[in-house]
Each structure stands twice: as structure tokens, then as C-alpha cells.
């Protein structure tokens, strides 16, 4: 009985995937483009902080202060500001992608997907959070 249910599930999964595999997600909206460009500009400043380990990538698709001790104190407030702005834009990005595809309720899953991809694509030497939330160096 158990096996039959599992088979049924697998079949359903396969059907659903096949039905949806065709279309790409819509990401060409002015809002997404604006967020992308803001984040790209900000990345020019953030990149050095990722590399020094001051800022790392969290498991929930955000960025966070990891070890700012190499940054002069006076600069830390601006790093803090960059982190806050980046997270605000990231939240907006996940929300806008879900919305552009007419499924606002997808925002959380979009975030989960991005969280994984940010971390996968992070350069070696950057700090990222593992699934249990601990910081590890890539």
C-alpha cells in the first residue's frame, strides 16, 4: 500500500514537472530591473567586504555582518547600512519575482531558491552560512 501511494506521488510529481517545465519565470519587469541594477551598483562596494569576510551570505537569502573586525570602526556603520539596504532590496526582489509571475505567495520559495544559488555561486574565500546557520568559509 505504501509503495503504491509513493508511486502515485512520483507520477504526480513527474506530471506536474512536465507540465511546468516549458515556461521560464518572468523576470523582465521594470521593478526587477531596477532592483538588479541597484544591487549591481551596491555590489561594487560589497564585494570587498565579502572577500575580507566582514560580510557573509546567510542561509535565508540575505547578507549579514560576519566579522567586521578588519574594518575601521568609523566605516562599520556604512557597512551596516549597505547590509540593511541590500537585504531590503533582496526582500523586494524575491517579492517582485513572485508577483511578476502572478504568485505573490511564492516569495518565500523564491527566497529559498536564491539563498542556495547565492551561496553556490559565492567565490572561494567568502563566508556563507551552512544549513544549520553556522558560518563556513568557501
Amino acid at each position: 500500500m505504501k509503495q503504491r501511494v509513493s508511486l502515485f506521488l512520483v507520477a504526480m510529481l513527474a506530471f506536474a514537472s512536465a507540465a511546468l517545465a516549458a515556461a521560464d519565470l518572468e523576470i523582465n519587469t521594470p521593478a526587477i530591473a531596477a532592483l538588479q541594477s541597484a544591487m549591481q551598483t551596491r555590489h561594487n562596494k560589497l564585494a570587498a567586504y565579502y572577500a575580507s569576510g566582514a560580510v557573509g551570505l546567510t542561509r535565508d537569502g540575505n547578507v549579514a555582518l560576519h566579522d567586521a573586525s578588519s574594518i575601521p570602526l568609523a566605516e562599520r556603520q556604512s557597512v551596516n547600512g549597505l547590509v540593511a539596504d541590500e537585504n531590503r532590496d533582496r526582500a523586494a526582489l524575491y517579492r517582485e519575482i513572485a508577483r511578476a509571475n502572478a504568485h505573490p505567495e511564492w516569495a518565500a520559495e523564491v527566497r529559498t531558491t536564491f539563498a542556495q544559488r547565492w551561496i553556490d555561486k559565492a567565490a572561494s574565500g567568502w563566508w556563507v552560512q551552512n544549513p544549520s546557520g553556522a558560518w563556513v568559509k568557501k
Binding site: L65, H66, D67, A68, I71, L73, R76
Partner: peptide, 11 residues
């Protein structure tokens, strides 16, 4: 002084 993340620090 500092904490682990450098979010609270004095020099």
C-alpha cells in the same frame, strides 16, 4: 573591545 562579529566594538 569587540564581540565576535565586530558589531559592538571600541578602540
Amino acid at each position: 573591545f569587540s564581540d565576535a562579529a565586530g558589531a559592538r566594538a571600541g578602540e
